[in-house]
Computed example of a mutant assay.
Amino acid sequence: MKATQNPPAQVQVTPADVLRMAALYLRRHGWHQGTYYANTTDTLTPPACAAGAIGIACAGHRVEHFSQLDPDALADYLAALGVFVDYLDTTAPIFFIDEDGYLLDEWNSPYSWNDDPARTAEQVVTALETAADEWDSLRKAEGETR
């Protein structure tokens, strides 16, 4: 950059941006169940679960646990994961029922949702993209809630 040029403006990354980047990562590198990433050492871009892809979208590299993220990336990760959980809560709630048929807990985890044996890669990618679209639809251009 020349001294006479103005530095580029800081761009605010939204949770929707992170979710779309995670979806793109899964389309390009593959989807995985059971752990954040497929157990492979021969690639820097292994197949990932939804949460693992969100981590990579925030950090730019594989992250074994969200505690390894720097503070800015951690804030982006938690915001995007929160938006994804909110989306899953409204579209695919998981209910835990005991052996007597009583509702024990109504809680949705992106980890258990991702790892459902009936889940497909396309469902995960679509959910990430739809959660991003929903977040955008609830915001004004300035990021405020409508």
Rank of each mutant, 00 (worst) to 15 (best):
A16C: 10
D17C: 08
D17M: 10
V18S: 04
V18K: 01
L19F: 05
M21C: 10
M21W: 05
M21D: 09
M21V: 09
A22H: 00
A23L: 01
A23Y: 00
Y25C: 00
Y25H: 06
L26W: 01
L26G: 02
R27P: 03
R27V: 07
R28S: 08
W31A: 07
H32V: 06
Q33K: 05
Q33S: 04
Q33M: 00
Q33I: 04
T35K: 04
Y36M: 09
Y36F: 02
Y37T: 07
Y37I: 03
A38W: 01
A38V: 07
N39D: 13
T40W: 04
T40M: 07
T41H: 11
T41N: 11
T41P: 09
T43V: 10
L44T: 13
L44N: 05
L44C: 12
T45L: 08
T45Y: 09
P47I: 05
A48D: 02
A48Y: 05
C49T: 01
C49D: 08
A51E: 00
A53G: 02
I54G: 06
G55K: 04
I56G: 03
I56T: 02
I56P: 02
G60Y: 14
G60E: 14
H61R: 15
H61M: 13
R62G: 02
V63L: 08
F66M: 12
F66T: 09
S67H: 08
Q68C: 15
L69V: 11
D70Y: 15
D70E: 15
P71A: 15
P71M: 14
P71L: 15
D72H: 15
A73R: 15
L74Y: 11
L74I: 06
A75R: 12
A75D: 13
D76N: 12
Y77Q: 03
Y77D: 00
A79M: 11
A79I: 09
L81W: 03
L81T: 05
V83Y: 00
V83L: 00
V85D: 03
V85N: 00
Y87D: 02
Y87H: 02
L88N: 07
T91R: 08
P93T: 09
P93N: 12
I94M: 14
F95T: 13
F96N: 14
I97E: 06
I97L: 07
I97S: 08
E99C: 14
D100C: 12
D100P: 10
L103M: 14
L103T: 06
L104I: 10
W107F: 11
N108W: 05
S109P: 01
S109A: 07
P110C: 03
S112Q: 15
N114Q: 03
N114D: 04
D115I: 03
D116G: 13
A118P: 13
E122N: 05
Q123A: 04
V124P: 00
V124R: 03
V124D: 00
V125H: 01
T126N: 10
T126I: 06
A127E: 06
L128A: 10
E129G: 05
T130P: 14
T130F: 07
T130A: 07
T130G: 06
A131L: 04
A131G: 01
A131N: 00
A132S: 10
E134L: 07
W135D: 11
D136W: 12
S137N: 14
L138R: 14
R139D: 05
K140E: 11
A141Q: 09
A141K: 06
